[in-house]
């Protein structure tokens, strides 16, 4: 039996994102002992990559909101709807729950994700003198869970484009949809490329 508590420095343990194995941090390049994936490249590189993705996403956020996400044609007249415009129309029609779902998924989730990712990227750079109240790992986990839900509006546009194309009524996607899809993809790339090793050290109370 090997006495683990004496040999292993618990503050240097890492979780492999691919296979979940626990690995010992020995410096720059480590390969997971179970799946051989490279866990850690270069903290500066992954941070700047995350920033690049995030800034791209933020730039795309502007056309995604300015340009119409869908056009609806009814008897010759054409209506253009932006994301916000669509929410307002739904609200005025009295579809409050749906208006809320789209508001949360397409407006609040992306904004929240931007704020959280910027917070995590800035926090990971500063020294950790005092203990943080917010668990950064949890925050990061949450952004990975809620992030994909901003695709709801894009899927809705896709379904309507595929479903409503009659001679009298037609719905077609708008250029805003393309910008929006790219924005969601880039925020997901940004979340995935953040190096969790840069976060605050883990709590050491756990012994299952």
């Amino acid at each position: 039996m090997i006495r683990e508590d004496r040999i292993i420095d618990e503050s240097k343990l890492l979780r492999c994102t691919v296979c979940e194995a626990v690995n010992l941090d020995k410096g720059d390049d480590i390969y997971c002992h179970r799946c051989n994936s490279r866990i850690f490249r270069n903290p500066k590189l992954s941070t700047s990559r995350a920033w690049a993705f995030l800034i791209t996403a933020f730039i795309l956020y502007i056309p995604a909101n300015i340009y119409p996400i869908l056009f609806s044609e009814k008897l010759g007249s054409r209506d253009a709807n932006t994301i916000i415009g669509g929410i307002i129309v739904l609200w005025e029609d009295g579809s409050y729950p749906i208006a809320m779902i789209i508001l949360v998924a397409s407006v609040l989730v992306p904004i929240l994700k931007f704020i959280v990712l910027i917070y995590l990227l800035i926090k990971s750079k500063t020294k950790r003198y005092k203990k943080n109240k917010i668990n950064q790992h949890k925050l990061h986990y949450m952004t990975e869970i809620i992030g994909p839900w901003s695709m709801v509006d894009v899927f809705v546009v896709a379904i309507l484009t595929g479903l409503v194309h009659m001679t009298t009524v037609r719905v077609i996607a708008g250029p805003g949809a393309t910008a929006f899809v790219l924005m969601v993809l880039f925020t997901m790339f940004a979340a995935l490329s953040i190096d969790v090793r840069l976060f605050e050290e883990r709590d050491k109370n756990g012994s299952s």
Binding site: N135, R202, G206
Partner: peptide, 11 residues
Amino acid sequence: LIICSKCHTLH
């Protein structure tokens, strides 16, 4: 050992 995927507590 196992590290929690959500909060990264060591177990």
